[in-house]
Nucleic acid binder design. Sequence first.
DNA 1: GCCGCCGGTTCCACTCAGTGGAAACGAAAC
DNA 2: GTTTCGTTTCCACTGAGTGGAACCGGCGGC
Lengths: 268, 268
Amino acid sequence: MVTTDMTLSEGFGDAGDPAAAAPPVSVLGRAFALLGAFGPAAPRLTLTDLAARSGLALSTTHRLAGELVRLGALERSDGWYCPGMRLFELAQLSRPIAYLRQAALPFMEDLYEATHQIINLGVLDGGEVVYIERISGHQAADVPSRIGGRFPAYCTGLGKAQLAFLPRARCEELFAGPLAGRTPGSITDAGRLRRELDLVAERGVACDREETEPGIACVAAPVLDRRGQPVAALSVTGAVGRINQAALAPAVRTASLGVARVLRHSVP
Amino acid sequence: MVTTDMTLSEGFGDAGDPAAAAPPVSVLGRAFALLGAFGPAAPRLTLTDLAARSGLALSTTHRLAGELVRLGALERSDGWYCPGMRLFELAQLSRPIAYLRQAALPFMEDLYEATHQIINLGVLDGGEVVYIERISGHQAADVPSRIGGRFPAYCTGLGKAQLAFLPRARCEELFAGPLAGRTPGSITDAGRLRRELDLVAERGVACDREETEPGIACVAAPVLDRRGQPVAALSVTGAVGRINQAALAPAVRTASLGVARVLRHSVP
DNA sequence: GCCGCCGGTTCCACTCAGTGGAAACGAAAC
DNA sequence: GTTTCGTTTCCACTGAGTGGAACCGGCGGC
């Protein structure tokens, strides 16, 4: 129910600016258009880029950016703007995120020590998964997940693990449209997705073999609240050859049950 | 040089609102006053609290908060507002933070596996340390650090490790005023701080025995850039009895050198 | 059951913060 | 030297933003 129209404005790395459809009317809208101009592919921008990507007039951009710098939401070093530390501080106060991370990290550490693969924690937002925390070692596997990043839920382990425990109706409405898929392995057929989710619900873990990224596999398990609703999911991710899904499943499931238990006891 | 006046508005948990000194003039200022109303002690607020703590008129608060919700910067569930996920997403695009975390995490994992104590990563912002990442296990030691949290630099290991490598002049100007201290063990004498920092610069590690929090000790080492300037610091933190500073120092120092090496090779 | 209180929401006339075109500036490229 | 490109400053216009006031609805007390 939240940020349904927000996904549209997600700053993807398209070079040519598509003259942002509906120029925002309110100052806040404009300010967030500025912030939204940044993205994984554009972690820092000059004033002119900022104006072009946000669709705002140059002088407006200049003034707003200046103000955002004063407020700490942007930082500027030799002509480049990038998101500032104040945003980071504020973001950490997000209640759900702070609680989740605090509860989950010890279990993520356990999983890491046991597997030495990448351990991810993500939550569902609309039909997408947002990565909240990720721990990894030195082997810089080309796993595309990134804290604060988003992926379509139906083609990631983290997403499927949570979708499977959503009320059926809610899930259906999320995937009414056609499923584009990310890789040749992604599920793009609604019927097959439904059967897959039934299987996940039955087993308590979701698997992903090259559905998110070629060569990458993962095993994920949901963290459920008292009412059985998913609040997050944990996953172990790595190169296909290094992920033995059958062997990892119990560990991931145990860890996510542990997180759920801690959350039940700490959050009222 | 950044956010010098920002520290004033840090939302501490004082119950009675001190009728925020200078009401912000710009819409953005007002919006950030709203966001700044949240704090560790107030992770969620009602509309009325929000208005009181930010010093804005109720109807203004209502409208702005509504807009921030639409933008994803705030979330609302049954009457409570809290910082939203969109902020979190934007914050992760902060170039310095993302690079730092990516470079540092593997080494932090190594330190964790070796010590099973709390591992912190922090950067200097003015005279304060901001915690960027923290990993910990199940023993919920009462260590006060929190991702996104701030402490005065001169009474934390992370802070001293970085201060010691700042140009002397810069350091002096940061601590021109009197040092309040956090605990009986904190350094509050400018002369003693200077000698301590000399020692840190010589050894390459900073120690903290109950200077931040009674019963807590840590060992920290700076991550220096090409020019020898500190960009961050790593620390191992835990209960005094469990931290053998002499034994940990080489490990922490090695890890921070590792991070510096990775950063040198990845960031231009 | 009725009333008063207290959060939250909506309304609306006033006005000042915000806008953006244009011009000045400065440094680097030609 | 001139041109070009990114940035900064200026300023007259105006509609987005403001906040007092009225309204709504649920809860607790009388």
